[in-house]
Design a protein around this nucleic acid. Sequence first.
RNA 1: GGCGCGGUACCCAAGUGGUAAGGGAGAGGUCUGCAAAACCUUUAUACGUGGGUUCGAUUCCCACCCGCGCCUCCA
Length: 479
Amino acid sequence: MTPISLYNTLTNRVEPLDPVHPGEIRMYTCGPTVYAFAHIGNFRTFVFQDVLRRFLHSQGYRVLQVMNVTDVDDRIIQAAGAAGVGIREYAEKYLQAFLGDLAALHIQTPEELVRATDHIEDMVALIEKLQQKGLTYTSDGSIYFRIAGFAGYGKLSKIDLAGIQPGARVDVDQYEKQDARDFALWKAPKPGEPFWETRIGPGRPGWHVECSAMAMKYLGETLDIHTGGVDLAFPHHENEIAQSEAATGKPFVRHWLHAEHLIIDGQKMSKSLGNFYTLRDLFAKGQKPSTVRFLLLSVPYRRQLNFTEDGLTQAKNSVERLRNFLARLKAPKFAAGTNPEVQKRIEKAERDFDAGLADDINTAVALAATFDLVRDINTAMDREALLQQDALRAVAAMEKFDGILAVLADDDDATLRELGIGSAQPRLDAAQVETLIEERNAAKRRRDFPRADAIRQQLADSGILLEDAKDGSVRWKYK
RNA sequence: GGCGCGGUACCCAAGUGGUAAGGGAGAGGUCUGCAAAACCUUUAUACGUGGGUUCGAUUCCCACCCGCGCCUCCA
């Protein structure tokens, strides 16, 4: 296991990862609120979390990841009401869409994907615990957490409590709070809204309490890692810390990881600016899942990622280079044996790749190591210095890298078809392509190049590219 | 105002107290019937600006400018 260091928002420093349970990482990731399709910014964070978990896995850790699905909140209640269905049913539709999106981006499903409404009892129990400790108060049937009762409040976000005063920018809405900084653990039912009858009274959970309750239920009172977007640090994660630590008296999380936001063409993504995209929007515009994943992971997570058309083009070309390389490597036509020089190159690439990720998940460094390998091995192949065992070893290295990058599989078309986004006109199947290639080969043999080129063009029109190898073989691939 | 991220070549981007990884794009070349792929060469006297520390700073310190985010629901 390479020693891993991660930036910790709690301390503003890069610190060694030191799991509570040796050999195992228990991490909680803030998931989606399923009131609509998740947007591309959400997936920047989710792809990061996926890279993190895949890397931990590759380093030999057992990973226990819990992701919440918020399926009760104001937006869902409102949207479900407008649609005339229950919140459970309404949320289900977008939960399924979310799962489809995760699969499209090759984001592994966490060990536990948990819905808030399946854990009301756990939340009630946590709230009761806080009540017993005198850290709550009730107002108009709602239960609030008294921030003044938790000394560590603000330690994550370094927020200036004095700066948060009632009135100005704080929501002094429908709920009566003693202090603007206090937050709702339990919201009293309002007419027409769904609610649960519980020991602490009728109502529904506040947002923050679900994460504390579910995280501790599945992962224990102290988690190794908790991640989310930077916007969640305050107030969401700050409140989670307050609730959890006030209840248990133990540190809630060792490592807080926050992914920086994605911006679009230099601007915040927002509906009002008209630059708001879901994954499906991008796919419908012809982008491939692998392109999007590559772009999202190519910029290290603590940097804002400027999402642009040009960036997509660059990502697409980069993925193409990796795929071309792997295909070339797999053509089994190398002389038997091993070249020590080549072996050393491969080992170096592997070391650099792991070292990059071990240093706060520096994906840019890991990609550089990957492309170093591509260039070195391509050069060796051109010089006929690559032997069969080298090729196998290089393939293994690439597959190891792709265990984390997850962009090499040429399954973009299939993925899109599963989402119902694929192109309407069916592409030629492999047999048809092979037949045309044979025809073209025949034309080439009799030096009928116009005919050969016409066939190549015909294939190109169907989205298929040909590559003639030196030995006369022809490789084809989808554009 | 507070907290945070960042300003490196045409674009994306890594990085270090001793003189700039990687990718994309462009240009030239090799190979090829032509392509494609690949390889080779090439594209930052220089890392926002101005000071300071130092033998030496892009890297440390100070100030300033600019971009973005959070501080209210938000990945």
